[in-house]
Computed example of a mutant assay.
Amino acid sequence: MNTTSDSWAVIVDVSKSRSHVDRRALQQEIQDSFGRVNGIIAARQPLAATIGDEFQAVYSSLGDATRATLLSRLCLPDGVDCRFGIGRGEVTTIGSGVAGLVQDGSAWWSAREAIDEARRHEYSKLSFVRTWFRAASETGTPDEALVNAYLLARDHIVGSMNPRARRLLLGHLLGATQGDLAEQEGITQSAVSQNLNRNGANALLASEALLLEVER
């Protein structure tokens, strides 16, 4: 067995998956989107399908885990959304099976608790929630409440965005200039700037940068 301490496990499932008629096409679209994320964010284990409509990944830092989950939502096609559980703790590799590595550990237990919490919130007055974080008891900072406060605000902003606003935020995250984005969308650079401010993209990016300071 091999144990990696201080890992950030991520469990993903499809929100309201039963409402999609063509489940096979849905699965392929999600895999394509997550493949794009895997090419952007380095992972100890990249996002990959496991069983049913569930995906899993392991990251080495809070910043990588939160950025990967944000990019994953933004890369999804219109009308498709996912829930994300992020868990901090240990990952123990026991062996391999038909669905890949067989693993256990407190990071996975915490991620499972987190996605269950995200699901509960989605069907409550906090229906915009898609992401939650849990830390195993053996880990220290960052504090769960601090991370989840950021994730609550982030999910509300992203959930309120129309498709264009999401594309602009994604492009901004990937380093495109406002001029590039304006050309892609067929609008003016001023319109891009106004959109990023009006829809909360700039506030989201600033809050993410502050969250990363917790790791330093």
Rank of each mutant, 00 (worst) to 15 (best):
S137N: 05
I40F: 04
S33A: 15
E213D: 13
W8Q: 11
R24I: 15
Q184N: 03
Y59S: 14
G39I: 00
S110Y: 01
F128H: 12
L146S: 10
R24D: 15
H156G: 04
A176E: 10
G35Q: 08
C82Q: 06
T4R: 15
L47M: 14
G39C: 03
E138S: 05
L168C: 05
S110L: 03
L196H: 07
V12I: 15
G140W: 00
Q194G: 09
A136P: 02
D78N: 09
K125N: 07
L76G: 04
L181M: 15
R23E: 06
Q178I: 02
R44I: 12
K16V: 07
I115H: 00
L26H: 03
R154E: 06
L152W: 11
N197S: 13
F84S: 06
C75V: 01
P77F: 00
S72W: 12
L62E: 10
L210T: 15
L169G: 04
Y123T: 14
G186Y: 12
E29K: 12
G95K: 10
T50I: 00
F55T: 00
L205N: 12
S17H: 06
G89K: 09
L76I: 09
W109T: 00
Q28E: 08
V91E: 07
K16L: 10
G39W: 04
D116R: 03
R120A: 04
C75M: 14
Q56M: 08
R67F: 02
L196P: 07
V147D: 07
G100S: 05
L151H: 08
I40S: 00
A118L: 12
N197M: 08
L212N: 13
L169M: 11
Y59E: 13
G105D: 11
R67S: 10
V37I: 07
T4K: 15
G200I: 08
R130H: 07
R44M: 12
E183Q: 02
L174E: 11
V10D: 03
L210K: 15
H121A: 13
R164P: 04
L204D: 05
C75A: 12
V192T: 13
Q31W: 04
L170R: 15
A48H: 14
T92M: 11
I157D: 06
L196G: 12
G63Y: 09
M1R: 07
I51P: 02
E185V: 14
